[in-house]
Design a protein around this nucleic acid. Structure first.
Lengths: 126, 126
DNA sequence: ATCTCTGCAAATGTTTTGCATCAGC
DNA sequence: GCTGATGCAAAACATTTGCAGAGAT
């Protein structure tokens, strides 16, 4: 095992996520974290994303037809809403019942991811 | 509007999906469809995937930490299980209750996607 | 005969890696 | 001072596009 050093850049990436209430793409992380660590490079963003995913500080969010986003893990359990008009991703509270009923015998479930697609409030009434 | 011609290659791509009971990646499509259309190029696969998505013959499946897959749309409503050991994607019957309860007021839901992650039966007992 | 589709190769866009240097510890 | 982390540039992938020629209608 190796330790991770606490660099200015890694802190900046973490801050980007702490300050944001929605999942971020690598480019968004670069632009947000650059304020705290000027000169930050995209390669460093990717390296830190990978590291923070490995230590489970971040979790990936998969979206249909769009690049993956990342968000702080360890929050309370929640799901997502992906607006097809503005592409924003919102967090949803709660979790539907009966997910375990879908699991075939012999399969072992460790996690689940639910994404609702549609139009968000801002886009419905502009 | 323009019409799509019925080429050997397009048929081959469609056949790949008809013969498969699970979502496919572009590379998998290339290798399966090549049997019906020798010499098939990856660019043609991508062009046909795009076309078949546009005419709603195919639907994309987003996976956490893995490239997107595609499957025939128009099947009965179902969800997916993604095995983190062998990376296969299975179809699940049924749909959990109460998804609409998660939707904030003013949001309009058009679709939802649920993916369970874990270990499939073949990988649990090898 | 027309005009779309194909294969190839080049172009793009995204993510990863090699390497010299920098900076935490 | 040691060693992991960074920035840059190049490399590796994945996907898209331009173009000349093949093939569907």
């Amino acid at each position: 095992m190796s330790f991770s050093r606490n660099t200015r850049q890694r802190d900046a990436v973490r801050q980007a996520f702490e300050q944001s209430d929605r999942p971020l793409s690598p480019e968004e992380v670069l632009s947000l974290a650059s304020e705290f660590a000027p000169g930050l490079g995209i390669a460093t963003v990717y390296r830190n994303l990978k590291g923070l995913l490995a230590e489970d500080w971040l979790a990936p969010v998969a979206l249909v037809g769009d690049a993956p986003r990342y968000e702080r893990s360890g929050k309370h359990h929640h799901h997502h809403f992906h607006c097809s008009r503005c592409d924003k991703v919102y967090e949803l509270e709660g979790c539907p019942e009966g997910i375990n009923r879908l699991v075939p015998r012999g399969f072992k479930v460790e996690a689940h991811h639910l994404v609702l697609n549609g139009t968000c409030r801002s886009c419905v009434r502009p």
